[in-house]
Amino acid sequence: MDKLRLRFSKTGRAVYISHLDMMRTMQRAFLRAGYALKYSEGFNPHAQISILLPLSVGCASVCELMDFTLTEVSGLAELPGRLSAALPEGIRAMEVYAPETKAKQLKWLEIEGRFEYDGRDSVAMAEALNGFFARESMVIRKKTKRGEAESDIAPAVRSFSAMEGEEAVLVRAVISAQEPTLNPELLPSALRQLVPELAPDFAEFTRLETYGENMSVFR
């Protein structure tokens, strides 16, 4: 049976559901909605589902993609509606289609960030942020599996802009989704390391859109 792709959003209280828990939640939601996921063969069968880019805990998204296979393809038109009704608060299925792209072609992510600066001026901070992220190179320390490593994150930030928002600075950026993967949390982390005076008191992110190599929308 052919692979299908689900586009869904994960916002509100649901952003604290971890990747593994999300996989479990999806499997149960498909059952509740009356769609049978295809299971792997073998001693310990598991549903054949794969979320294209695991989302870190705390990060929201309106452009999540998940590949799956059904044992029987029928009622696809109603799938988003029925699945949404079977999902926890904050998770909504938007569309289902047969994908024409491969997961590895997903290259860029557009993200929105809310940087909160307690008792500081948003206009000035936004300006300073734009200045900082225009740098050619931003070498920071990153935790890796083998301890700490230095890495230049600038090539992974394709574009960056900050503007004044309500009680916060609103950030828009296009960052590398894969090879290398840039966790949005590294943006405030870079500030803490290189320009502590620009580090926000709190930052939260939402994934807005997925793009391919040439910045065409990835579906």
Binding site: R13, A14, S18, A86
Partner: peptide
């Protein structure tokens, strides 16, 4: 996720 509610 233990502290948020919002479950199905």
């Amino acid at each position: 996720a233990r502290y948020t509610g919002g479950e199905y």
